[in-house]
Design a protein around this nucleic acid. Structure first.
Lengths: 202, 202, 202, 202
DNA sequence: AATGAATGAGCTTTCATTCAT
DNA sequence: CATGAATGAAAGCTCATTCAT
């Protein structure tokens, strides 16, 4: 696939992302996606075999976007593990707040993982994504334990899972409630959790 | 509406719940719901004006189910606030694990809150549900602060939001990954968080 | 069929007449007719085999209503044939103006005569009705010719048909146009037509 | 809309006209219209938003057809007003007799004007159509009065209305009764009416 | 390669009719 | 007799997908 084709494909994916975000998989109409991408309806089928496949490629594009958010956040980290964990959490939260319009996509993908005809493909990718992300956080926590910042008897994987999940959960609560401030909630929660993780005399 | 009608309505709602859980709103076909409920297709429309309304009533039924889980869990609580918070969290988590087949409905409803034609109705109910639940947890935390179990400077609403959200988030991770144990993760995380909430000398 | 049954049957027919008049055959819903008649939906089927049969019985009731209008008008006639023809025409026109709400039924029945599944039954009755009515008018005209009021060379059946038809046609024009006065039009037209029918020296 | 689209649209309208004429609005099935037009069901919806809109466009096409009949008839007129009125009436009558298969459409449209969901649109067009046609005939009559062919005291609008209406009315009677000859009836009636309109010494 | 007119499978919904009570 | 809950055939309409240009 040459550059021109790659570009047009990406164009369609991004148009599709906004339409799927707004209307959901079923509510999204190929004609609208095509129009938004500035191409003909038939052209979409030059690049994607079916609506489902297009949706799936939007999912992959979205996951890349998410990975990017993590990578960006990670690259800026320094200092104590406590500080790094706090900053990572805070940074990713803010990144997503800035792209809230994509958050509805998250919910569509979650739903797709349970009701799509290709639910297993979605589940698999989500599973690996979460495992990887939890693994990353676990690494930080273990580093903190090794460095003596954190207590030894921590349930590392449990705490990692909750840290990862809080990102989802607070954004979700924000989605329903514009008055809810997920960044503040995250900060307050992280602070308390880390206090519970640290050695008492620290 | 007499008892017979109420029963049949509930029958249809429960059949619809399983079909919506399996296929999603759009994938669910009225004929299948009717068949599963053991009634004719037209009968569904005797009780519900439209597929959308049926979906919405399933949502309300589901929310009642959720409320029930909280009520049940709350009624059994006693002892210190720490103990109660831990038990509440643990109990609700287990309740949901036992009804995991309904968890896919949660995702459908989340998605509906962002892409359904009646998204605002869904959002509103979710918003109020989360506010109520957070308020409940906040009450516990404040009680713990008053009783001297917890530190005074806690960010109560932040911690409540994260506690509430962790329930969603860990079940979500379980949904994707059968090897992930949300009950264990919850226990480990709660323990650490509460440690961070408690007075240091306690 | 006893009196009670006859009465209830008539009750349903009259309720059906108003609903058919307002909604047309297809737009009319049995449930609405039943409700308007103050009976249950099933009761309608105690008296009529099908919606089509009910419609047809409304048609027969309506035709009786029309016959009645003619009978009423005829019974009051006296004087010269010219006077009688004028009065008959005028009287029937006024009778219908007073029952304009039934006029939409006329159009429904006309339509039924060309598109109903039992169109032939409708056509047959209309055919005989028009033949009878034309015959009646022809009788008057012939009487006028015999009495020397009218010229001998009149095309009796043509004039009778046009007199009969004008009743339909002017009411139709009134139906579309509330500003159109069919009574006045009828009077002006009859006067001229009769002038054309009379002996010149009269 | 390019020529190909116009042609296909007309193709569908004409197919629809025959089906509506035969089955009525409600009895007509889109699938049948599509099949008769030699297109797919979906194609009908490429050209018309709904069945109702298609019906309405058939109505407009039909009205144009009617206008054409008047225009054709008018263009051939010459001689005295009496002669012209007679010829116009005769010519239009014959035109419609030749297209009797479309007459059932007239009845459908009349019915639609009283029971369709868009009855007002139908009524409005009919109202204007009748007004225009009556105006045309009134013009002829007035011309005849000015030229001294007709008497001065005629009720012009009444006579015009009856002349216009007779066309409807005699075709209607023909519709019910194949033995009825509307052309002959029209001729006989016109002759007498015009005699009543003319100056006595003429 | 790009297009959009054409298609028909498939779904929701309506409502005449039935029949157990 | 009267009823209305239950039914499913039937039809309008949508939209992913195809394919001739």
């Amino acid at each position: 696939m040459n550059q021109a084709k790659i570009d047009k494909k990406k164009l369609i994916i991004e148009a599709a992302a906004t339409v799927f975000a707004d209307k959901g998989f079923n509510g999204a109409i190929i004609a609208e996606i095509a129009k938004k991408a500035g191409v003909g309806k038939g052209t979409v089928y030059e690049y994607f075999d079916s609506k489902t496949e297009l949706f799936f490629e939007v999912f992959e594009w979205y996951m890349g976007f998410f990975t990017q958010s993590a990578t960006l956040s990670l690259s800026a980290l320094s200092g104590s593990i406590e500080k790094r964990l706090t900053e990572l959490s805070d940074s990713m939260m803010k990144y997503w707040i800035d792209h809230m319009e994509l958050y509805t996509l998250t919910m569509e993908f979650w739903a797709a993982s349970s009701t799509s005809e290709v639910r297993d493909k979605f589940k698999e990718i989500f599973k690996n994504g979460y495992r990887e992300f939890r693994g990353l956080i676990e690494g930080f926590i273990r580093e903190g334990m090794e460095k003596g910042e954190f207590r030894q008897e921590l349930d590392v994987s449990a705490i990692a899972a909750s840290l990862v999940g809080t990102l989802d959960a607070l954004l979700l609560q924000r989605w329903f409630d514009e008055e809810f401030d997920p960044v503040a909630a995250n900060a307050g929660y992280i602070k308390t959790l880390i206090k519970g993780m640290k050695k008492e005399d620290v």
